[in-house]
Design a binder for these strands. Structure first.
Lengths: 343, 343
DNA sequence: CTGAAAGCGCTAACAA
DNA sequence: TTGTTAGCGCTTTCAG
């Protein structure tokens, strides 16, 4: 691979001149510049970005940590970040934890070691402390969409009102006359990760006089299959729920699949609601009722904040974005209740 | 950020010693090593990977170019590569073209400029020539899953028998008694990208006496929405098709959504088949009949090949992987035909 | 076992 | 306008 020195030699100038000529940063005699360009082309010269970064101390790269790129939610988030960062001259490198929590922290540190100019950390399998540690280092980092109780970040962050989202779901289901409501939440027996989207839901249920029965709770791992399995369990109960809330859309899709297998019609006999509003939600059969997270808006904000931080500006956390419940066709009145009362 | 010199100073040794002590590459007095480790810890030293790469001329990074990470197919492919590469000590950096063909080539070049140790290029929006150009450079690169007629690569590649896949679909549909079959293929009027998966399908149809009617062809862009739109067009025809083949699963899901909206029951009144077998396919409603690409097997092979190439071994392209038709519930006998003939 | 020296490819002052 | 010099942070011979 040709280096800048090869080009310099060929053009009969020095490396510094080539650097300037190629970058258009300083002033060069148009003739020499032309000659340099010519030689560079002939030698098929490509600047070594690693070397450049070492000198400039900038990589023009931002890191994005996601829990599982296979989850459309994260893929869509990543896309939004890329679309915003690229025009600003930044490339994004995705740190994908492949669904393995134990990798998250290492990923974060690796991005730092790689000298990214800044990081966007999306909630999910990533301890808040790890983010704090990076922030303490002085490396710009924006935590996004944190959904667990965490000490306030000492860096600006982008947030979403998950609690309100959870409440929206509870109200919607209750308003439809459901009383036997189940939830599939991300976490596990031993490591329950209580998120706002489920805590607020549960609280609201209790508040309105229909506390969640412990048998109506299943832990899952955010995959299609975990939603599917949980739903099968629920539906084989003596007294199955009439509505299931899955705390993300991917699991909700699994729930619908299970219901279909058991010939439990959605929404006639079972209402299901998800969270995230991934692109697929509106194309599901039936289209999924879900809490919409404005991924694009949120990520545009996050990227913008990060870029400002990198530029050395002072920035403040924007207000948390409010949720919207998108009512589609996977939820309906609970018939046993609604019919008597409806008349 | 502490450098190796800071650690050296603190430990009263030289940078070279720190390097050796930390890497465990040479021999150091256990005492000094302990001291070095201690100082490194205290200073919270993190090696600068950029600097290291410049020296060692290795980044321990492989690049992966995908067309659109938002398409679960690519996300799953990426995951498979990561899962394989990580244990081997390689990180993967995803070059996501965000569905924009014009970005692909630049992405490839950028990965090269970033000095990745090797590249896996997945077919889709990436001209074969760009891959050849990289290969000519000497940078290890493995083209994967090429599905268009392309000059044979001068580097080993991993392939899949797309043509056989297309034929499988044609045979399946024909065997079910369908005669009015439509296809939604990726490409556009002006830039038709003819892929094996559709060419072979069309040829087989003709071969068996049911040539594809031109009105039964729609161009699309691989998104859910494009499948959805095409299906709506097909279904509003005076003589709508009884089966639709979408050349990827994501579009097929869009097709199902459109059918549902029009109350055209799948598969009773319309059969639909996809291609890829993304995770979602079996959880769709109804579960999708599709051509399975063994992404994991394929990517394990690709990564393995690449790693060998990087290690300087001679490697040969493995045999193309054969397709499997996974028959699920989105396809069924065409009733008007099958009933008379069934008896 | 440890240090000195050189160099990876590039850019950024500063001189000439 | 171009060249000289230095240095980014690290590793790697090669001496000592």
């Amino acid at each position: 691979m040709a280096t800048i020195y090869d080009v310099a030699r060929a053009a009969g100038v020095t490396a510094a001149t080539v650097s300037v000529a190629l970058s258009g940063r300083g002033v060069v005699n148009p003739k020499t510049r032309e000659r340099v360009l010519q030689c560079a082309r002939e030698l098929d010269y490509r600047p070594n970005l690693v070397a450049r970064s070492l000198t400039t101390r900038r990589t023009h790269t931002i890191g994005l940590v996601v829990f599982d790129i296979t989850n459309p939610f994260y893929a869509e988030v990543a896309q939004a970040v890329e679309l915003m960062a690229r025009p600003a001259g930044y490339r994004v490198i995705i740190g994908n934890a492949t669904g393995d929590e134990s990798l998250s922290v290492g990923l974060l540190e690796e991005l730092a070691a790689r000298q990214v100019d800044g990081i966007i950390a999306i909630s999910g399998g990533l301890p808040g402390e790890a983010v704090q540690a990076i922030a303490a280092t002085g490396l710009p980092i924006i935590p996004c969409l944190w959904d667990e109780q965490a000490p306030p970040f000492l860096t600006p962050s982008v947030s979403f009102d998950f609690a309100a989202g959870g409440r929206l779901v509870a109200d919607h289901l209750l308003d439809l006359g459901h009383q036997r409501i189940a939830i599939v939440a991300i976490g596990s027996e031993d490591e329950p990760v209580i998120r706002l989207r489920e805590a607020a839901f549960r609280d609201r249920l209790a508040e309105r006089g229909y506390p969640l029965d412990p048998s109506m709770w299943r832990w899952a791992d955010s995959t299609l299959d975990s939603g599917y399995t949980a739903a099968h369990e629920f539906l084989s109960l003596a007294e199955p729920p009439t509505a299931i809330y899955a705390t993300n859309d991917r699991m909700a899709l699994g729930v619908i699949a299970a219901a279909r297998e058991r010939r439990v019609p959605v929404p006639q006999a079972l209402s299901v609601v998800g969270f995230d509003d991934i692109a697929l939600a509106r194309y599901a059969s039936p289209p999924l009722t879900t809490v919409r997270i404005e991924k694009t808006a949120l990520m545009v904000t996050a990227t913008d904040l990060l870029l400002r931080l990198i530029a050395g500006e002072e920035v403040l956390s924007p207000m948390p974005l409010p949720p919207t419940l998108v009512v589609r066709e996977s939820t309906a009145f609970h018939s046993r209740i609604s019919q008597p009362e409806g008349r």
